[in-house]
Amino acid sequence: MHFWHGGRPPGGAPKPGPSIPLPKELSTEFRVLKPEALRFFREGGSLGLEVDGKIYENVKVVPLFPLSDDEGWISVIDEDGREIGIVERLRSLEPESQRALREELRKRYVVPRILKVRSCREHFGLVEWEVETDRGPRRFLTRNLRETAQRMGVRLMFSDVDGNRYDVPDLRALDPKSRALIERYS
C-alpha cells in the first residue's frame, strides 16, 4: 500500500500561454496618486488630503483589496462620493501621511484578525470563542463554522452571530493549539 504525502499531483497541467498586457491608454479614468505629491492629514475627526496643492477635506478611504493587500491600492473618495484617485502603496507615502491613512483605514474596515485562540467552548450548538486579535482580546459567539466559514486557500473568514467578521489570514501561521481549535469547529 502506498502512502501519499501531499505534494504535486502526478503529471502537471499544461500552462496557458503568456497574456497580452492591457494598453495603458485604455485606462484614462484611472488616476494613481503620485506619492510625492500627496499628503494626508488628520483634522478633528476626519481625514484630509492635499494633492498637488489642492486640499480635500473629509475624504473617505476604501481599501480595494482589503484581504489580499491591505496596504496597497487604496481608493480615496471626496465628500461628494467621487473618487479622487488611488494610492498604490501606503508605504511609499511620507511617515506622517502613512500614520494618518493607516489610522483611517483601521476605522473604516473593521475586520479583526485572529492572532491566537485562547479558548473555545461549545454549548447548546453555539461556540463561544475567546481570542486575541490585532485589535485586542475579544469574546464572541458563532454558530457552527461549517455553515458560515469562508475558506480561501489558507485563509479562513467567519462571522459571529452579530454579523461581525473575523479573519484568519493564514491558518498554518497560527500556533498549533489555536489551529486545532479552529479546525475542530470548521
Partner: peptide
C-alpha cells in the same frame, strides 16, 4: 463602515466622530 459603524455629527461646522 465595513464591520461596524461610527456615530458622527457636525460640531461648529466640523465633522466629529
Amino acid at each position: 463602515v465595513v464591520g461596524g459603524g461610527i456615530l458622527t455629527a457636525k460640531h461648529n461646522g466640523r465633522p466629529v466622530e
